[in-house]
Nucleic acid binder design. Structure first.
Length: 209
DNA sequence: ACATTAAGTGATT
DNA sequence: AATCACTTAATGT
């Protein structure tokens, strides 16, 4: 199966037997950009491990407002999903594909078993929790203590880093939604950044210098 | 040429 | 920093 090839990504991290089990129990899932993987009130019975692409994890409040929590990249597992699986609670968050993405879906049933049997799985799970936790702290810092202009610039740098490209193809509107602010504010702050010579602005495109 | 959508701007809260 | 109301610019048909 194709899963085989993708698993090589974890060669260094997973012990051989664990990889065998992943092969046996996991299923490969491909989604297109924009696809919703987990909607806010779903209960989760599979945990995704990302192979390629980028997933976006958002928190949603009662009336539709969304906050970006963090991005998942290749090799990341969704700690939120694990949490949700274990507690059996409603997700309370939304996951969607930022780009075309591939992932391995691990059924909830085997996870318990693996935790007992495989030290490398234990390490992987804890590491995932830890990584996500740190990113969350980052997001909280940014929301609580940073002004919009800092948040925006930070967002742009993050984007640049994770996509490996200086070009960000998003509208001001879309950025505003992710940062939970208005388009007008984003436009104005971007203008300021442009005047400082940090970015160049085009239609639906921003270049970070 | 016209309609639509993205971005820029001044004024107000 | 948000919202409104409006303008200007780029793009699609």
């Amino acid at each position: 199966m194709l899963l085989d090839v993708h698993l090589n990504l974890f060669e260094s991290r997973f012990e051989p037997q664990l990889r065998k089990e992943v092969l046996l129990n996991g299923r490969l899932k491909k989604v297109n950009a924009g696809a919703v993987l987990i909607s806010t009130n779903a209960t989760v019975k599979e945990v995704p491990i990302l192979i390629s692409g980028v997933l976006k994890v958002l928190r949603q409040d009662d009336k539709g407002h969304e906050v970006l929590l963090y991005y998942l990249e290749s090799g990341d597992a969704c700690a939120m999903s694990m949490n949700c699986c274990i507690s059996g609670q409603e997700s309370g968050f939304k996951v969607l594909a930022e780009e075309d993405s591939e992932m391995i879906m691990i059924p909830l049933l085997v996870m318990d078993d693996w935790l007992r049997k495989f030290p490398s799985w234990r390490r992987f799970v804890f590491q995932s929790y830890n990584d996500r936790f740190l990113e969350l702290m980052h997001s909280i810092d940014s929301m609580a203590f940073m002004k919009m202009d800092e948040r925006l610039f930070n967002y742009l740098l993050d984007k640049k880093q994770s996509s490996g490209s200086y070009i960000i193809t998003k509208t001001h509107q879309e950025i505003a939604e992710e940062l939970n602010t208005s388009r007008v504010v984003v436009s104005r702050l971007l203008k300021q950044l442009e005047q400082k010579g940090l970015v160049e602005l085009y239609r639906q495109r921003i270049e970070v210098l």
